[in-house]
Amino acid sequence: MSEPQNSSQPGKSITVDGVSKIYQSRGGGEVEACRRIDLEIKAGEFVAIVGPSGCGKSTLLYMMAGFSAPTTGQILCGGVAVRGPDIERSMVFQNYALFPWLDVRGNVEFGLENKGVPRNLRTEKVDRHLKLVGLSEFADKHISELSGGMKQRVAIARAFAVEPGVILMDEPFGALDALTRRFLQKELLRIWREQACTVAFVTHSVPESIVLADRIVVMSARPGELKSMIDVDLPHPRDSTSDGFRDLERRIYADLDEELAKTFSAEGLLG
């Protein structure tokens, strides 16, 4: 906490300590979204969280962000308990969540302004991050004039510009076409390497998790528990046709297939 924030800082750690989350459903019943999750994300690490839909992976991410509190257990960021949303844990949302009343520059500047960064420094940081995502020429454009891929690049610039300790990403490329997605994955890795910070990345795409992450967390079907933890030791850029990549894919799919079978049989769709 005492160290000054700068871009060479390797980010902050995230500790998920015995976290369970139980929701009150509309019908009055209880839904257990996550069950006894223990997870340590090291400072500067890139962790992907994969799992069947409804497994509570987004719930876990939203608890890391501080939008909702765990029912039991606690979440620490840099050793300090998370008590609500904070700019030290910035976020990239699946549907971009850009502010349509601001232009591209205004969106990237938003967090910096709230952080109290002085104007001249703000302009410099915005320019640098727009350049980083290749949108320097679009600074004055309105959000509605951008394509989906460009919007997500603005959202990435907004998240990195505040120089957070952690970036939480909730299926950020889920709504994009395959080519844009591939391109943005590379971009993200480049920016992440340039500006070291911790990343927790939720996705339902196994290949995406292998392309990006240092470590992959596989979650079980609801209630979401930690199913397995897989280190990815392949060198970057990762070739999805290599044997190592294929092996990992097979392992993760094997784990997921087991869980999917549970989900479907619970829903009465399988014998």
Partner: peptide, 15 residues
């Protein structure tokens, strides 16, 4: 208002 806009506001420093 799209709920994520509120979330984004909170994350990006509206205390």
């Amino acid at each position: 208002i799209e709920p994520h806009l509120i979330h984004a506001g909170q994350v990006f420093g509206c205390k």
